[in-house]
Nucleic acid binder design. Structure first.
Lengths: 215, 215
DNA sequence: CTGTATTCTGACCGAATGTTCAAGTTTTGC
DNA sequence: GCAAAACTTGAACATTCGGTCAGAATACAG
C-alpha cells in the first residue's frame, strides 16, 4: 500500500487538481451516458467518484459547466484520434480507414459516443457551436479531396454531405442505440464480431456507392 | 360560437375524454421532442395545451404514464402506416418503398421520430419491450422474404439484421439529429429537396449493396 | 516551522416539480 | 328535472436537486 518510492519533484504543483478533475470527468461521462443528461444528478457523480457533492462543485461551478467540460474532453479526444484524409492514398484506403476508425471509437468508448449523441439530440448549444467551428471546415476540406479523386477517375461523383451524414449515422448507431441493436440481433451483449460484420457491410456499401468497388 | 347543429347521439359517451386526451398527447409529444424527456415538465404541457396542470394528472396519473401513452401512440401510428413487404413485387420495389416511407415519416412527423429516439437512447424499458414484441418477429418475416429473393437470384445475400439497422440509422438521422444535419448542410431549415437527395442517395446505396442495381 | 494557498466537506437553502386532494362545475342517463 | 358520474381546478405538500458557504484540514513555499 504505502508506495512512494520516488517523489518526482516536477509537476506536483496542482497535482491534486488534475487528478480530481480527471476522476470527476470520467465518472460524469459514464453516468451521463447511463442515466441521460438531465436525470444525472451531481450527487450520483459524487457517490460513484467517492467524493462529497460539494467537492464536485468546487471543481465545476455548475452542472452545465461540468457537462460542457465532459463534452469538450470527448470532442478533443476525437479530434486527436481522427486521421486526416490523405489524398495520395486514394479513396478506397481513406474511406475504409475512416469507417473502421469511427466504428472502433463507438465500440471502445460507447459512453463518449452516447453522451455526444444525447447532447446532439437535445441540441445543446455548446455542441452545435462546436460542430459549426470544427466540422464544417473539415467537411469542406474532405469535399475538395473527394472532388480531386473524382477528377482523377478514382471514384464517381457523390453528394459529399449526405455521404458523411450517412457514414456518421451508421457508425454511431451501434454505440448510441446499442439497446435497440442488441434486441434486433438478439444478443445480451455486442461482441467484436458484430462490429466487424457491421464494419464489413458498411464499408462495402460506401465503396459501392462511390463506384470504387464493383458489385 | 354556440354551434351544435347535430348531436349525433352515438359516441358522445366520453367525448370530452377522447378530445382532451388527444390534445394532451399531441402537445406532450411536441414538447418532449423539443425539450427532452426529462426536462419536460407537466406544467409546460399544461400551459401549451391551455389546461391547468391538475387536469393533465386527471387523465394521466403520472408523467411516466403520459410518456408511455405518447410512445404507444407513436408506435401504433407507425405500425399502421408501415407497408408489409410483398414478395411478388420484388426487392427493388419493396426496398425503395421502405426507405421512401421511412424518410417521409421522419420528415412529416419529426417530433414522433425524435421522442422515440430519445426513449431508445435512454433505454426506456417500455420501448425496448415493444421492440422485442413487435419488431423482432417482423424482422424474421422480412428475413425470410429476402432469403427467397436471394434463392430466385433477384438479389445477392446480405446480412439482413445489419441491412435493416443501417437503413433505420440513416433514415432516422435526418429527423433525430436534424440540428447536426442543418449545421453540416449549412441550412436554416431542411427542405423537401434535402430529404429527396437523401432518399435518392440512400436508396442507391442499399440497392447497390444488395446487388440489385449496377454501378 | 510558519504563513499562505489550496482543497475538503457537512450543513443548509431556495426553487422547481411531480403528485394529491377536496371542493367545485358540467355533463350524462333516465 | 335530478341524481350520479365525469370533469375541472386552485391550493397545498413532500421531495429532490443544484448550488452556497464558512470553517476545518491539508499541501506547499520559503
Amino acid at each position: 500500500m504505502s508506495e512512494s518510492p520516488k517523489r518526482s519533484k516536477n509537476q506536483l504543483k496542482t497535482h491534486i487538481r488534475a487528478q480530481n478533475q480527471a476522476l470527476i470527468l470520467e465518472t460524469a461521462e459514464r453516468i451521463f451516458a447511463r442515466q441521460g443528461l438531465a436525470k444525472t444528478t451531481t450527487q450520483m457523480i459524487a457517490d460513484e467518484a467517492g467524493l462529497p457533492k460539494a467537492n464536485i462543485h468546487y471543481y465545476y461551478r455548475s452542472k452545465k459547466d461540468l457537462l460542457e467540460a465532459v463534452l469538450e474532453r470527448i470532442l478533443q479526444s476525437w479530434l486527436d484520434s481522427v486521421s486526416q484524409f490523405s489524398e495520395e492514398l486514394g479513396p478506397r484506403h481513406n474511406l475504409t480507414r475512416y469507417i473502421s476508425e469511427k466504428l472502433d471509437q463507438s465500440r471502445l468508448n460507447p459512453s463518449a459516443s452516447k453522451v455526444f449523441a444525447m447532447a446532439l439530440i437535445g441540441e445543446e448549444p455548446f455542441v452545435l457551436e462546436f460542430l459549426r467551428r470544427f466540422f464544417v471546415d473539415e467537411l469542406q476540406k474532405e469535399k475538395q479531396t473527394l472532388d480531386r479523386w473524382v477528377e482523377q477517375g478514382l471514384m464517381k461523383p457523390v453528394p459529399v454531405e449526405h455521404l458523411f451524414i450517412t457514414i456518421w449515422a451508421m457508425t454511431q448507431t451501434y454505440a448510441d442505440f446499442d439497446g435497440q441493436v442488441k434486441v434486433l440481433l438478439q444478443k445480451e451483449q455486442l461482441e467484436e464480431s458484430d462490429f466487424n460484420d457491421a464494419k464489413e457491410f458498411i464499408t462495402k456499401m460506401i465503396l459501392l456507392s462511390c463506384g470504387i468497388e464493383e458489385a
